[in-house]
Simulated assay, not measured.
Amino acid sequence: MRLHIRHETHYDYDTPLAYSAQRLHLWPVDFDTQKTVSWDIQAPGIERALAYLDGFGNRVHLLTFGDIEGEVSIIAEGVIDCTDAAGLVRGVHSPAPDAIFLRLTRATTPNAAIRGMAEKHFAPGRVLDGLHGLMADIHARVAYELGATTAHTTAAEAFADGRGVCQDHAHILIAAARSAGIPARYVTGYLVTGQGASSTAAHAWAEALVPDLGWVGFDAANAKCPTDNYVRVAAGIDAAGVAPIRGSRRGGNIERMRVEVRVEIAQQ
């Protein structure tokens, strides 16, 4: 599947922006089932940006800019070829030890209900089956509802409320897997729903380490493992660690942000 992605982030301020430093997770990395045909980032200061691979194997850009009046735009756009591997992720170079993905954060700390759900699914030697069951269980228990949660909602809060978005589904699966001793990581990327379709938002899911198999993706928001309709961009401990854009600024009083994402099947 060849997918075309355009991810626009626009910022507007009431006063001039004196200085801004931003970290971007907006550049997909290639691996066995994902190859970049073309990719580009347009942003103030991008020509001077520091680009590197971090400890999780993500391609990161650090950029600085300032003395700007009016709107600031950061646009990532390109074409990616994807192959369906039933969620199996191979060929991603991640220097970090697998055990780091057992670390609990505020967003991924399980409550008693999440731990109880995990205990129900994980029998000895049946990790893959348990993860599939866990994914289906979360999908059934947590309704997808825009606006029900915020970027700061934890897995425990979303699970208790029974509502959330893809970030919450991923955090809940990660919390449950880690509580069972299974390394799990948070993944950002894009999804198109099928032939002739397009998507208007970025997406998130989880990956878990299956013994003797490797890392496998699980999208509890859609109750499926990632296919060639998915583009993987970055992975980390939780959503905060791999936000597409994160940074700080001086000036630019009262920030307003607008995000526009277009993902569609491209002509080959």
Rank of each mutant, 00 (worst) to 15 (best):
145 E>A: 11
262 R>P: 00
173 L>W: 10
159 F>E: 00
138 I>L: 05
206 A>Y: 03
182 I>F: 02
240 A>F: 12
142 V>A: 07
190 Y>F: 14
120 K>Q: 14
8 E>M: 06
11 Y>H: 12
67 D>R: 10
85 A>K: 12
64 T>A: 15
15 T>E: 13
209 L>P: 08
138 I>R: 10
116 G>T: 07
258 R>I: 01
77 E>W: 06
265 I>Y: 06
12 D>S: 11
261 V>R: 09
207 E>Y: 06
202 A>R: 04
75 I>H: 08
64 T>Q: 14
80 I>T: 07
112 A>T: 13
114 I>T: 08
219 D>Y: 01
48 R>M: 12
76 A>K: 05
135 M>D: 01
240 A>C: 10
22 Q>K: 02
67 D>G: 04
49 A>T: 12
42 Q>G: 13
150 T>W: 03
175 A>G: 10
2 R>H: 05
215 W>L: 02
243 A>N: 03
173 L>D: 13
129 D>I: 05
207 E>W: 04
215 W>S: 01
151 A>M: 15
226 P>D: 02
16 P>A: 04
151 A>S: 11
30 D>Y: 00
104 L>K: 13
113 A>N: 09
152 H>C: 04
80 I>F: 10
112 A>G: 11
75 I>L: 14
159 F>Q: 09
222 N>E: 06
83 T>A: 12
242 V>A: 02
230 Y>W: 13
120 K>S: 08
253 N>F: 12
33 T>H: 07
30 D>M: 07
195 Q>C: 01
159 F>K: 05
262 R>Y: 08
171 H>P: 15
171 H>W: 06
132 H>L: 13
100 I>D: 13
207 E>I: 05
208 A>D: 09
80 I>N: 05
237 I>P: 01
67 D>Y: 09
112 A>F: 12
254 I>H: 07
255 E>D: 02
94 S>T: 14
213 L>Q: 14
94 S>N: 08
102 L>H: 11
51 A>Y: 03
113 A>I: 06
172 I>F: 15
215 W>P: 03
167 Q>G: 01
55 G>F: 07
257 M>Y: 00
59 R>K: 11
38 S>W: 14
113 A>F: 07
70 G>C: 05
103 R>V: 11
183 P>W: 09
154 T>D: 09
41 I>M: 09
46 I>F: 14
217 G>L: 08
6 R>W: 05
123 A>V: 14
252 G>A: 09
194 G>A: 10
6 R>T: 15
151 A>N: 07
